[in-house]
Design a protein around this nucleic acid. Structure first.
Lengths: 193, 193
DNA sequence: CCGATATTAGGACTAGGTACTAACAGTAGT
DNA sequence: ACTACTGTTAGTACCTAGTCCTAATATCGG
């Protein structure tokens, strides 16, 4: 034994984890044991064979590719809206919205809900977000329901600018705060919202 | 001949393109020709064998990997990164990212790219966006390529806070500006990023 | 030194191919 | 009608990276 079986198996796991493309033969060479030993190790650790590993990586990539942000024009379901006054939407945090590592919702989804509600509440053909000032108050987790409440604060017809305040809650708890400055209609500058 | 050779080969290319995981045998079944014919077709079209195709898909995913964050969790392709210093990502605006009405990119995509780059540049297990101050300078349209450049401005070890500035450009033109205040590691407050 | 555990060797078999040879069908040209 | 050519199919040997199984040997602890 170059080292103990346990030591080798631990290193084996790490080695394969950071390079799934390595063959049993290369592993045998690296650990100075026979190919059969490597295979026994893989069995004991339930590590699949090279081709299965590669396939798995490839499949993961293909399924993850389609997962950025949804296409619907509003993120979340608008449950109430009074144009140019206020609006409410709900958004259920699902697996595809969270970091796989820790189950915490990725901030841009929470932002997207608020931002898209700010757009929706504007009573105009075209509303674009020009500026935003946002604050994530606490993490949102998979399974939680985020309720976003938008309030139109100030309509300055003079410069086609409207300020919308959005507060998002999980239950009674404030999780997100944002102040969006929106341009409306025939403005030339500013991006969407 | 069920159809002409040419027709079959065109369809073969499409079939494999949208499902690289298909075997020659399955293809032969589908096109009602022999396995050998499928192989001749692949030769003529220089389409590699199943295993090579799968490997290629898997490699593409892995070569894009970033240390502190798995790649699929970043919006846009990270083309350069120096942890705790700077990072660059590119994001091609496609049909699914824009308002169908006017072809203008929805702001949260531009935000998501910047935000996720701000997360990626942080050299820590966990990075969460606490605050953000953003400004959409001009609209981004379908077909445009947005290059986001993140710069770590200030690491205040005392309160686990890092300020990251992200500027996004289309060509030479600044389209988005954001200042992200990130919490890192063992902080308890603040949401993801 | 004995027995258990660990390691190695070998053979038969598998999927999904490559590379090559050969046969045959249908069509076109002369 | 004979030949040439393209397209298709069949079959063989070989490859990689394994699985599954049996059997032999090595090594360590008590």
């Amino acid at each position: 034994m170059r080292r103990t079986k346990k030591e080798r198996q631990i290193q084996l796991q790490e080695t394969i984890a950071d390079n799934p493309f390595i063959t049993d033969e290369e592993l045998a060479e690296q650990f100075q044991v026979s190919v059969q030993t490597i295979r026994l190790d893989r069995m004991e650790l339930s590590i699949p064979e090279l081709r299965e590993r590669i396939k798995h990586v490839a499949e993961e990539r293909l399924t993850n590719e389609v997962r950025s942000l949804p296409i619907e024009e509003v993120i979340g379901d608008v449950v109430d809206i009074e144009l140019d006054k206020s609006a409410i939407s709900i958004f259920d945090v699902k697996r595809e919205h969270v970091f796989t590592r820790n189950g915490i919702a990725r901030g841009h989804h929470v932002f997207a809900q608020a931002n898209s509600l700010a757009v929706a509440v504007i009573n105009d053909e075209l509303a674009l977000t020009a500026k935003a000032n946002i604050r994530f108050k606490r993490s949102v987790y998979e399974g939680e329901r985020v309720v976003a409440k938008a309030k139109v604060i100030d309509i300055q017809a003079a410069n086609d600018r409207t300020i919308v305040e959005v507060n998002s809650y999980v239950g009674q708890e404030l999780v997100f705060q944002g102040e969006f400055t929106m341009y409306r209609s025939n403005m030339t500058t500013g991006d969407e919202g």
